[in-house]
Design a protein around this nucleic acid. Structure first.
Lengths: 385, 385
DNA sequence: TTGTACGCGTTATCAG
DNA sequence: CTGATAACGCGTACAA
């Protein structure tokens, strides 16, 4: 006998077998779906199991099959309703598939590969992350783990990394088009933290759109993706100069903060300043903000991610990974850009075209912008370059 | 040879050992903290491991030790920022303790025992749930799992169940006291779903507090803990009758919805109606709502839960469970009850009537709210009753 | 320091 | 239908 000191040993199938006077295999078969067990045996096993409070242990099966039925999910701070929504969707969908969620909450994209390395130790079957892969080095580190991973808004892919992308850049252009159509001549850009590639793309598209209309480059101010960050950034701007006539924000949290700062300063939204956000978090639809925003369509992005995930799970040869799929962000116009209340922006999109995806390639965003209900049809429909 | 068809077999320590020309134990020792390995051996092992992309597998250790270092966390819908905050705290804290989070997102408390049963199969070392245990039957089912479980706001405990409670009822009474002190004579209670014991306690305390001041019992309307639910409930109420002068809501989401409905109807908060929420979600602090609320002090509740959890983890005899700890909810006064911006404190002694405006249907102008700046600065800074 | 052997709890295979 | 047995990959006493 070796085995170190036993800590809190749980009831095992062997214990049940002993009590029931049957073999351990019989117990196993009783609790597995395809059980070839006679009724009497089954009854005796169940009785013994109940008496002992036996619960089948799923851990050994992981060891043998190499499949844990656990999926790692990596998200940023859940005080951001966007991340919370992403996680919520995955948690529900994965549970419906009979998969467990092993959650890792990280502070920023830099911690991503560390988090996944940790998950790899638990032999998760796959991983999803709401954070983009930051660097090529990180992508290689991830690929070394040989865990099929699906990212949101990552430009980098690899043999084990797929990505679901939103058309951030095109959305930025569309935001510029909308503001210009509303008569805005001086635009502002409330940027997110520099690490976020997605936010950078939005700002880039916005700058392009602004330039395309012959307007001055947007004033750029920096926030940190939080409400407080947006509030503070706007306060700083207002102290230094006049506000822009139209503001595009890297996300909705900052947009709400900016709106609060503007109103605190006695300005009106949309009377004095038009504001557009990104993410379409629930709060954007609340009357007090009524914020025009881009809906990333979390359900569809999550759905696309899940499809790639399940494909990877079903096919160990991993042919399904290394792909990119695009889901178009949908403009939802609300009062903060002067739309009448109770309006929705674009509607059913054709979007969701599966990009054939190759690695790297800074390529542009796919997905056509739509003018939606063509409410006031000024050219909101700015085709992708 | 038996062993079924091998599915995606990962690199094992045996593979590394073979390549490095050492024993499997040498590999194990190299990767374990207390490794008695010579430098040359270590180097060869690491080289081989790198070449093969070996990652230690933590699953077998779970089997042997019976400890998974995973903690099950059960939460409700993450569209509620309160649940998101709870989860965020646990995710960060557990990670700091070197524990993994196995997440289960359930729709309601009824699904709780099913969720924990599922977690039990993965041999989680412990579980935390933001949902209360609903019935004694559920409590017994949970205890049968022999997984140390910490609940939030559950009245039921058991040998394996501890709970961290907020003083819901006292908070309800305090809410009534505050409203009365502000001159409210007609009170309303916006209830949450009936399943929530915590919400019921709040309503009960509120009714007691209202009665203690000789006022008529509060008008009760029912929401579903969501923003939309609060909005709709308030709309229904406004269609049927005059609004109460002061409204206490089962949670902040409904409170924000109610405020939106009131303003949509041309009423002012706090001009015409005072509103108090519960949870102190981030949005309650946003200027557009400036909502007085009760802070459950998630950090402290989570901290208390973690203490009980780690105690249970350290002591297999389970002496630490079956306990109850209380964390007082803290009233945070803001503009929605007439406090000047940036105020805290509590009620009583307000004397000063000036209750809600005349509630004369429609009357007021729409946008003139906000201006939370002490628009009616009745004495706010008093000590708790 | 290093290698050998065993066991954790289960599933899958094979013989009865 | 049932029982015996070999893995799964790792830690860990024990022997060398």
């Amino acid at each position: 006998m070796t085995g170190g000191r036993v800590t809190r040993r749980a009831v095992s199938s062997t214990d049940v077998a002993r009590l029931a006077g049957v073999s351990q295999s019989a117990v196993s078969r009783t609790f597995s779906a395809a059980g070839g067990v006679s009724a009497p045996t089954r009854a005796r096993v169940l009785e013994a199991a109940a008496a002992l409070g036996y619960r089948p242990n799923r851990i050994p099966a992981i060891m043998q099959s190499g499949r844990s039925h656990m999926v790692g999910v990596v998200v940023g701070g859940l005080d951001n309703p966007f991340y919370a929504a992403v996680l919520d969707h995955f948690a529900v969908a994965l549970r419906a598939l009979g998969l467990q969620v092993l959650l890792v909450r990280v502070d920023d994209a830099l911690a991503l590969d560390g988090a996944l390395e940790q998950l790899a130790g638990y032999r998760v079957d796959a991983a999803v992350t709401a954070l983009a892969v930051g660097s090529r080095a990180a992508a290689e580190a991830l690929s070394a783990l040989r865990v099929p991973t699906v990212c949101f808004n990552s430009r980098l892919t690899g043999p084990w990394i797929s990505t679901v992308r939103s058309n951030n850049r095109a959305a930025g252009r569309q935001a510029a088009a909308l503001l210009a159509a509303r008569g805005v001549r001086a635009a502002g850009w409330l940027a997110g933290p520099r690490e976020s590639a997605a936010a950078r793309e939005r700002g880039r598209g916005f700058a392009e759109g602004v330039a395309a209309r012959g307007l001055a480059p947007p004033v750029a101010i920096a926030g940190d993706d939080s409400h407080a960050g947006g509030y503070d950034a706007m306060r700083r701007l207002l102290r230094a100069r006049q506000p822009p006539e139209g503001l595009f924000c890297g996300n909705d949290l900052m947009a709400c903060g900016a709106i609060d700062a503007l109103r605190d300063a006695g300005l009106s939204v949309p009377g004095d300043v038009l504001v557009i956000g990104y993410d379409n978090i629930p709060q954007a639809g609340w009357r007090a903000y009524d914020l025009t925003s881009f809906d990333q369509q979390v359900e569809r992005m999550a759905g696309a991610a899940l499809e790639m995930l399940t494909a990877a799970l079903a096919d160990p040869s991993n042919a399904a990974m290394g792909r990119t799929r695009a889901v178009a962000a949908r403009l939802v116009e609300r009062g903060s850009t002067g739309a009448a209340a109770g309006d929705a922006g674009s509607d059913d999109a054709g979007g969701d075209d599966a990009g054939g995806g190759d690695a790297g390639a800074t390529g542009d965003d796919a997905g056509a912008d739509r003018a939606g209900k063509a409410r006031r049809a000024q050219e909101v429909g700015d085709r992708p370059a």
